[in-house]
Design a protein around this nucleic acid. Sequence first.
DNA 1: CATGAATGAGACTTCATTCAT
DNA 2: GATGAATGAAGTCTCATTCAT
Lengths: 211, 211, 211, 211
Amino acid sequence: MTVKVFDELKIKEKENRKLIILQIAEEILHENCIEDVTIRNVALKAGLSTGAIYMYFASKEELLLSMLIKNLKTLHSELETLKEIDDPAKVLKAMALAYRNYFINYGKYIDIFRHLTDKEGPEAIGQDHKEELHNTVGSILKFIEEMAAGEEIKKYTGGIPPGRLVPMVWSIVQGVSQVTLSTTSGKAFGFDFDQVIDDFIDLVFLKPKKI
Amino acid sequence: MTVKVFDELKIKEKENRKLIILQIAEEILHENCIEDVTIRNVALKAGLSTGAIYMYFASKEELLLSMLIKNLKTLHSELETLKEIDDPAKVLKAMALAYRNYFINYGKYIDIFRHLTDKEGPEAIGQDHKEELHNTVGSILKFIEEMAAGEEIKKYTGGIPPGRLVPMVWSIVQGVSQVTLSTTSGKAFGFDFDQVIDDFIDLVFLKPKKI
Amino acid sequence: MTVKVFDELKIKEKENRKLIILQIAEEILHENCIEDVTIRNVALKAGLSTGAIYMYFASKEELLLSMLIKNLKTLHSELETLKEIDDPAKVLKAMALAYRNYFINYGKYIDIFRHLTDKEGPEAIGQDHKEELHNTVGSILKFIEEMAAGEEIKKYTGGIPPGRLVPMVWSIVQGVSQVTLSTTSGKAFGFDFDQVIDDFIDLVFLKPKKI
Amino acid sequence: MTVKVFDELKIKEKENRKLIILQIAEEILHENCIEDVTIRNVALKAGLSTGAIYMYFASKEELLLSMLIKNLKTLHSELETLKEIDDPAKVLKAMALAYRNYFINYGKYIDIFRHLTDKEGPEAIGQDHKEELHNTVGSILKFIEEMAAGEEIKKYTGGIPPGRLVPMVWSIVQGVSQVTLSTTSGKAFGFDFDQVIDDFIDLVFLKPKKI
DNA sequence: CATGAATGAGACTTCATTCAT
DNA sequence: GATGAATGAAGTCTCATTCAT
């Protein structure tokens, strides 16, 4: 029995250390770029040896994947808190802001996403991990669909079924984030996240009343 | 005289080979990912030695940049052909399709964009090249703004000035492309480019008439 | 406690390996020329992979610089032991011999010197390292000046202040080393280091008494 | 007959173009460093193709060697003009200045010297070229020996035979050039060529009279 | 558990040299 | 004679991963 308790403690500790490593990797990604997220750099910043990282993650691939999933889950739970809002315009704005946080803080996850999913062959992501990723994204999309199915929103979306609003919302929020928050377009051309989102909401939700 | 003709032929041939290399690089990018666009790989696929690539491009940066600018220019000229269309909904659809081609054929240029612009320090893109890139993007954005300033479109966009419609259009088209055309979201969740664009156009342009 | 001992051992071992690599690099330099002191060659001769060298030296520049400074320091400490000699002729001879050892054993440091200092731009030596080098050379020159300031020596050098004797001594000893010890002039024309130095000492120190 | 004249003209023209290429190589060496003397750079500056250089020089080695020998010959003929000077101190000063010119203008010939002579094996310099180099240096040394055999000079050099003065003069002049004219020691420590040479001449030639 | 030395492959890049035209 | 495209070897350096300790 006692041994078991110890074992569980050990597992918890291990899980803890995993999270710490993950967080350090995120900091590096956030402060620099995905190319700088090397095992060496992570180990260095964590005060560990390079080899030690492999006690917690089987490969770099797995580490990156863990980062991605962890953050998608954070995004999901943030979205969940929006369920109580009634006004669809406000929901959309809140969703956009949640995504904005996800994008700003862990901004370069699209890179990871792509990096992990576009590859084929031996370096590619394992099937099991692929599923976990798929499920996590799925739950976010499902949430969006639920939001889109609200009574209020139908007044503005007409005949478009909720299922079809999902890729639209997802696309727009991601597109706006990427375009307005990236160094190039964003800073160079003076694009502003809030402005674009607000204008979009105006366009969709307020216009009918105006005319 | 004859010599001059020969000279011109040589220059043309060289330009040709440059384009072939560029196309090969594009194929690699398209079939794999930006990390796989290495000088080695390009040379291999071109049946050349690695050194030979440097006869046509002074550095890897220049190769990537050439790809990017070439395709942005193609996009721009495709957009220019849309000037005669009157119906703003049709323009938007046509623009989206143009971008879709750009994105589908040479898919991951956003990666290059970021890859080239996010870096700082010695590996970063040179200032002169940065400007060329900036200008090319600028001319596309300017075109969008001109489209957004049309009389017809004002009926649907209300008080939003054309300048502010630019990032919105750009964001949405890019976002939809990325989300629906990428392997992951697109194929995995059954998102469809045309459907999303059409729904969006419905939302913005047809709704007023319904209510 | 034991752990600490182990740690210290490791550090010592690492330092040891660093010295071994340095020595191997020196051997290559001695047997060939500075162009042959490549990371590849050093690694090969050390039975290591090229990457392994970078565990001990951050760059090739650092390796070369370490070689140079190490040997300048050896020269300096050898010179320091000459402080007790009274007879200036003997001091000069001893200094020349010390330099000869430095030059013979690690022969082509002048090359490194130039290699490191003549370059400008990114490949050039870092400012911090430049200073360390400057200081090391400075301490040697300072020693020579102190020697040149001795009472005895004034009888032979007349009104030339000690500070001006420094470049002269440095030049002559280096020149004689290079000319007599190099493969070409030295071996080809039968020049002999000791003979030249002795003659020079005769010329300066003994002549007065003769006339 | 006529054909022969043409042939000679051709040979002359070829020799001419050889000299031009040589001069261009020298300019590059002078303005930059030996590493920048590449066949490509020379061809570029000469307005030729890389391949064309090989019509005039069998290899890069030969080109460098030609540069070296050409300049040693210039030095030699400059020295020959000093034969009429009587005062040995003045001769020494003039010789030093001649060497200084050789060193300043084509300063990095010592590198070439070393580069060419220290190598062994297939890349090494051919035996025939080695001899030409040897002879050219030999004629300079012979000149120095003749100078050192003058009656006037014996008063200052006592019993040292002229043959043994040769390496001393050669060493000192080269050493002083290298130490005072190099970026590092020279500029960094404020060494001055003329000062050192003058002091040295004082030391050897004028001191006896002072005491 | 943890270390960190070492590997090996691969990244970009340069350059002397050759050869078909 | 001359061109310049192409090669192939070599250069510096990075990094995921392994393994003896």
